[in-house]
Write a protein that binds this DNA or RNA. Structure first.
Lengths: 155, 155
DNA sequence: CATCACGCAATAAATGAAGTTACATGAAAA
DNA sequence: TTTTCATGTAACTTCATTTATTGCGTGATG
């Protein structure tokens, strides 16, 4: 069971988009994310339907944010991705006839629900603006120390 | 990303083992779990190393619990399974050089850690004895109402 | 009208979990 | 001691899911 990195990846993409003034192309983003442009489009298409980003065709086209950074929480992004399962472990069956399995599910569900609530509440408490601020703080810190990786800053 | 059902399944198996006096064979358990005996052995072999179950070969052999139900928490079982990732979402990279990704990871890690702690604490608070008691309560409830599924009770 | 960029369907490749086979080991019963 | 039962384990196959890729279509800009 490999952990899903979609949320992490999309946040990355959104911040990259926010970084620049002009719309960001799928090609550019794909390069930064080390993936294929079509994958970028696929994912962002979902976010567009939820009103998080906009896309424009033709010259000077590409992706841009539809709302200010401060008005997008990580939970918004998560939900725009279709609220994928948050927990890596789950029950074997939804409505088992086996009483043993019923007992197992009941106990696990309690725990799972609680953890899931904590996670979603946590995501709701962080906005992209928070992340962006953190990024700029890191940028500043790196600039003062002046390491070799400075060239990678743009991405 | 499909959720991992191993914990749920193993709990099911352990309760089945606890249900009967004599050791349970892989064949029996596989039948109840609708899987293959070798899969049962593979999984239980891990638990045996962690001291949760015992196995015996030959006539009258099979699997039995190495400790009383009340002394095995769901967390113990989870750890015996190798403490697999609990969250379905994670970071794209461990130690990214990209500052954007670093900022994303930092924010997510905080939330993830909290949720994970809640989940593990929750698992630690439930023992197999709890589950077994719940099972027997369900068994009793079903017996009184006397539904068609009574035949499935043994499993 | 040539170029750029997204839209989208369809397909291929990669990954990982689960199932299966085959054979070996050891214990109890006949 | 020989047969039967049961686990131990490696190797292999199957299956589902995710991700990457190709190809072609649409619309906007210069």
């Amino acid at each position: 069971m490999k952990t899903d990195t979609r949320l992490s990846g999309v946040l990355h993409v959104l911040l990259h988009i926010a970084q620049q003034d002009r719309p960001a192309t799928s090609d550019t983003l794909a390069l930064a994310m080390e993936t294929h442009p079509v994958v970028i489009r696929r994912v962002l298409a979902g976010l567009r339907e939820r009103g998080l980003v906009r896309s424009e065709k033709g010259h000077g086209g590409g992706w841009s944010l539809a709302r200010p950074l401060a008005e997008i929480t990580l939970r918004d992004v998560h939900e725009a991705l279709g609220s994928p399962t948050v927990l890596a472990i789950g029950n074997r069956a939804e409505a088992p006839t086996c009483l043993v399995e019923q007992a197992v599910n009941a106990a696990l569900d309690d725990v799972f629900d609680e953890a899931q609530a904590v996670l979603l509440r946590g995501l709701g408490g962080v906005t992209l603006a928070t992340l962006s601020a953190d990024f700029h703080a890191r940028l500043k810190a790196r600039a003062t120390t002046g390491t070799l990786e400075d060239a990678h800053v743009g991405h």
